[in-house]
Design a protein around this nucleic acid. Structure first.
Length: 704
DNA sequence: AAATGGGGCGCC
DNA sequence: AAAGGGCGCCCCATTT
């Protein structure tokens, strides 16, 4: 009782509840360093004025093992902007600025850049802060970076506390070194092009970046070491990811235009229809106006926003429909789905396809997600990339397709793949499930001519990982015997005799939800159950998967002790701030995150490990040059394009690499793959090593 | 006019 | 008191 009281009081004193507040007041795991009073006075900033000076610098440092360097450019887009100069440091005391392309002298030109290239290529390690930016600029300037020894310092800073998204050089220098750095932009404003700035005015700012990067490499090395072996993989994959990002994806503009027109027409009809039902027009996209309109019909979703108006989320509207039967609610849901699809996906893609068809580049952030996943989206203020999150591209509904071997029609349409015809018409008794071909956004992504789009994903990765880590026998058996894991879970909980499809759905939702800490209130809400019933269900669920939950509990305790949750491969996530917080909800968040980080994060680790192997053994392999490319990363799925004549050679190699078995795991991962003429219109296939042939993964006879 | 935060929703 | 992890982009309403 006492404990409950104390907790209750501390909550009323704290107004920290949910959402972004988990981050807004977050305190970094590393205590900030004392201010370094010797910075910048005791440091040297040197402008290289002649080629001769640069040659001397090269000679003086011919035996150096390490350097840090940094590019100054006219902008962020290497396809459009230019290198203005480069800074370099061989220790953390002295930084040099080498002007390459300035309006005023000294401006040493390409010859200097070439000498600079020789210097950095001779190093055992180049310390770089956000290495892809600098390497990309060098490659666009004509210098091959594939053989450079780089070490990304931003990554090491991030590993010290991965809750800190995209660490900045300035903030990390303050935290770890106590240096108060000022950027050039801060002093003189953004609009000034560095090209017109005099080299001597840029020297201090550019050279501090180099020495700060050098110094940070040293003081964050412990975190890199702590995070081995996965930190080494993190570091190695920057170059491969950079090359994946650099490719322009092909979009089918005509198709995107067609579905855009169609979707817009339907949306207008829907809009008219909704106005008619309400008797007046309003902005359906405005939460407030929509809430107002629905309230006036006498309907209430029962949930309200902070600012006091009724919430009108799709789930709430659907529930309200279940109660009231009011058809207009379904129309609103449809309207929301369609406008989302148009505004976030179809229209932007159509626009990119039209305006910049050769520059459909997708950005991945590698030091942003606390668990270690990649994030996809725009690179702020850098239009080298499109503003598009490829990882959230909509999937169309699954539907039944029929297939038949018709090698004569081979590849004459997007419905014939390797001699197999696919149709919604029952052209044979062989059937399988795949995405709808209608208004299918992913169908807008197409490979180069003479290539297939190949998507390969890990089978049930998010359940496989906790199974291998915990040894949970119920799930282990399902994986070992290749059974449907959700069905097996449902049978275990409800008993074989009570099993039905609905029970499977429920078990499936729980398999993902409860493991991450979903409680009985949410479960009851989601499945329209009594709270008591939901509570019983969860208890039953946990009892039947006792090995799994015993692991989860041990894991939470361990995280509390060390303040850190580690992935299976060693990536840390700091949780001390949450686990020791006054607020109950913050502590709960910490516990949920401890379990989730290890599962989600180990999955992310696997993607990175596999990428590194694929890069070396397949993508850059001389036998497969121009025959295979990685096109996208979707967490547990990698999209490739594979040249048609090399399919049988390459796909088994990729599969073999992806189906890795981590040390200590009872089983290897398994993958599924789909092949098609686009991302959206692709079908599950299998490969037989005996015949060397691909075959759709179909079933024969009755649909079940 | 531009920046910001909330609500909402697409994906894994 | 709040009650599943992770992300980015959209629109809107409000603030600067």
């Amino acid at each position: 009782m006492m404990i409950y009281q104390r907790e209750f009081q501390s909550i009323s004193e704290n107004t920290i509840f949910r959402g972004d507040l988990y981050m807004s007041q977050y305190k970094h795991w590393i205590k900030s360093a004392e201010k370094d009073p010797s910075f910048p006075d005791k440091y040297n900033f040197v402008l290289i004025k002649t080629i001769k000076d640069l040659e001397s610098l090269k000679k003086e440092n011919i035996d150096a093992d390490y350097c840090a360097w940094d590019i100054e450019s006219t902008g962020l887009n290497p396809a459009e902007d230019n290198i203005v100069g480069v800074s370099i440091a061989f220790d953390s005391k002295t930084g040099y600025y080498i002007p390459i392309n300035h309006l005023a002298d000294p401006s040493l030109g390409d010859e200097a850049l070439s000498i600079f290239y020789d210097i950095i290529m001779s190093m055992n390690k180049c310390f770089l802060f956000n290495c892809r930016f600098d390497m990309r600029f060098m490659e666009y300037a004509g210098y091959d970076m594939s053989e450079i020894n780089y070490y990304d310092v931003q990554n090491a800073c991030w590993l010290s506390d991965t809750n800190n998204k995209l660490p900045s050089l300035k903030e990390e220098a303050l935290r770890f070194l106590g240096w108060e750095m000022q950027s050039y932009q801060e002093t003189l404003g953004d609009e000034v092009s560095l090209y017109t700035v005099h080299p001597k005015d840029l020297t201090y700012y550019a050279a501090t970046d180099a020495i700060a990067t050098f110094a940070l490499a040293g003081v964050t090395l412990d975190y890199y070491k702590e995070s081995k072996p996965i930190s080494e993989i993190d570091n190695k994959i920057f170059y491969p990811v950079m090359k994946v990002e650099e490719q322009s994806l092909n979009l089918n503009e005509q198709y995107l235009q067609e579905i855009l027109d169609e979707a817009r027409d339907e949306l207008m009809e829907l809009e008219k229809d909704i106005y008619k039902d309400f008797g007046h027009s309003f902005n359906i996209g405005s939460g407030q106006q929509l809430a107002d309109a629905i309230s006036k019909l006498g309907l209430d979703t029962g949930e309200y926003t902070k600012s006091g108006y009724m919430k009108t989320g799709k789930n709430l509207l659907d529930k309200l429909y279940q109660i009231s039967g009011d058809e207009v609610l379904l129309k609103i849901i449809k309207y929301k789905e369609l406008s989302k699809k148009i505004n976030s996906y179809i229209e932007p893609l159509r626009r990119f396809a039209r305006e910049r068809p050769d520059a459909i580049r997708v950005c991945y952030h590698l030091n942003k997600v606390p668990t270690g996943r990649f994030a996809s989206g725009r690179d702020k203020n850098n239009d080298f990339f499109i503003t598009y999150n490829i990882q959230s591209s909509p999937k169309s509904e699954e539907e039944i397709w029929y297939t038949e071997h018709r090698p004569g029609n081979k590849d004459k349409s997007e419905f014939n793949i390797m001699g197999w015809e696919f149709s919604k018409e029952p052209i044979s008794d062989r059937w399988l499930e795949s995405s709808d071909s209608r208004r299918n956004v992913r169908r807008g992504f197409i490979p180069d001519e003479d290539y297939y789009w190949v998507s390969i994903d890990f089978k049930s990765e998010e359940l496989f990982i906790p199974t291998m880590i915990s040894g949970e026998p119920v799930w282990m058996e399902a994986f070992e015997e290749n059974k449907d894991i959700h069905k097996q879970t449902a049978i275990r909980i409800f008993g074989e005799e009570n099993y039905d499809k609905n029970k499977r759905q429920m078990a499936k939702a729980c398999n993902f939800g409860i493991l991450y800490g979903m409680n009985h209130y949410s479960l009851a809400e989601r499945f329209n159950m009594e709270i008591k019933e939901a509570e019983q269900f969860i208890n039953n669920y946990k009892r039947n998967l006792s090995t799994l939950f015993a692991w989860a509990n041990r894991h939470k305790k361990k995280a509390k002790k060390t303040g850190t949750a580690y992935t299976y491969f060693g990536r840390p996530r700091r949780l001390a701030y949450y686990l020791n917080h006054d607020s109950y909800s913050m502590r709960s968040f910490g516990q949920r995150s401890a379990v989730n980080t290890t599962i989600q994060g180990s999955g992310a680790d696997i993607l990175k490990i596999v990428l590194w192997k694929l890069w070396n053994k397949v993508i850059t392999h001389p036998d497969y040059s121009d025959a295979v490319d990685i096109l996208a990363f979707i967490h547990d799925e990698i999209c490739f394009q594979v040249r048609k004549d090399k399919m049988a050679e390459i796909i088994p190699k990729i599969v073999d690499i992806m189906e890795m078995q981590a040390p200590g795991w009872k089983l290897p991962l398994e993958v599924d793959f789909e092949i098609g003429h686009s991302w959206g219109l692709s079908f599950p296939f299998t490969f037989s090593s005996e015949t060397g042939e691909f075959k759709p993964d179909y079933k024969i006879g009755d649909l079940d």
